[in-house]
Design a protein around this nucleic acid. Structure first.
Lengths: 231, 231
DNA sequence: ACTTCGATCTCGTAC
DNA sequence: GTACGAGGTCGAAGT
């Protein structure tokens, strides 16, 4: 990884065009060739960047640029698209390179996929006698998270979210409209399951006859682990 | 901005939990207190980070950690939420601080707002004889991007997106429901215009009788009067 | 202050 | 490889 602190100007042309006026910034060149331009604020997103695969070319400025104080022009060109980042460097304040080696990568826990897997493996969370028809049941407008049958054999579409908001209720409503057109399945009822359901989403769901279920992720994970089972 | 190259382990606990095994990484501490942990690959997103407002506390490791080789423990705590990032530092390879000053910020061109302006100025893109009634036509549930009349005088509501997805079709549907209640306007038909329309969004739109149109931004900018361009 | 929505979204994952 | 949805999304514009 190469870290350069420099007074520079940056221009991006690709999916849009963007321009950064002259200022001191950090330019990070990663081992895979990607380039990030960071200022000393904001959040994790760089002001400008180029994603891999790309290549960096360093050239001398033309006469006009040299007169403006440019000492070096870095062109970062994406190898697949025609996206291009041009960094006009005026002054280099620091330039250091370090070998970081490979990164073992991030391990995450607690995202929606885990919740869906846990619920698929424990459909009795919804009620005794429930059966899973399939996970990611396909429809023309996208897959339904879980398709189940309840203890009476009625089909149930389950929408799972980490945080239940109105969008999720709308999504489930669309699925129910579509599924209920299929005489093989109809009537289909809906369950909206989330770790946390916003009051507005709950109100809308109930108004549409959709059952809401808040799920305790830690408790559900506990069900999976025999050592923590109560009996 | 402080740049530290260090062999470290990182743990995040907040909206999810995440863990980074021991490796050499770049730790960036920005002037606003935010912290970014980058590896030497991937794209612009850090492996882990803490957004402002937050504070950094440096402490000595406890005995267990010290035996594992930890020399210093950095705790970055968000001031608003209870999100917390814990960086266990084993070896510091470099530690440098630079004053970057304020950044004048990014100037962009080519985003959805520009697409809307271009289409408003070139309604014949939709068909010969079309007229623009107005841009941002106000309704009780928000403004319709473009309200037009087609060559037969029928009112058309146009929803514009850079990338057309299901949300946009839902939005247009709500506008059409509302506009069709107005006897002065009814019948109103819909056009969903985007640089790129996802198959699922297209399916839903067609099912609802909405016309889909993919727009070539560069071609449209080509027919545009150069004097009205941003740059 | 709060909400809504776009984004060079990025990133994972299923098909 | 492509397509789709989630995200510790971030950030800006409008209310």
């Amino acid at each position: 990884m190469r870290l350069v602190i420099a007074r520079c100007q940056v221009d991006y042309a690709g999916r849009l065009t963007a321009h950064l006026p002259l200022a001191i910034r950090l330019i990070m060149v990663k081992a895979d060739g990607s380039v990030l331009v960071h200022s000393d604020g904001g959040s994790y997103k760089p002001l400008n960047w180029m994603s891999p695969p790309c290549s960096l070319n360093v050239a001398d400025p033309d006469d006009d640029a040299r007169e403006d104080g440019v000492t070096s022009v870095w062109t970062v060109q994406n190898s697949k698209t025609d996206d291009r980042l041009v960094i006009s460097i005026h002054d280099v304040i620091e330039d250091a390179t370090h070998d970081l080696g490979d990164d073992p990568g991030l391990v995450k826990d607690g995202v929606e996929a885990h919740l869906q897997r846990l619920l698929a493996e424990n459909v009795e969370t919804f009620g005794v006698g429930w059966r899973l028809v399939r996970r990611e049941y396909p429809t023309a407008i996208g897959p339904v998270d879980l398709l189940c049958r309840d203890e009476t054999g009625v089909t149930v579409a389950v929408e799972i979210k980490r945080r239940g908001e109105i969008d999720g209720v709308e999504q489930l409503t669309r699925y129910l409209d579509l599924l209920n057109r299929d005489p093989q399945l109809s009537p289909v009822r809906g369950v909206f399951a989330a770790q946390e359901i916003k009051p507005q989403a709950r109100t809308l769901a109930v108004d549409r006859g959709i059952t809401c279920l808040t799920v305790d992720y830690d408790a559900l994970r506990g069900v999976d682990d025999p050592s923590t089972r109560l009996f």
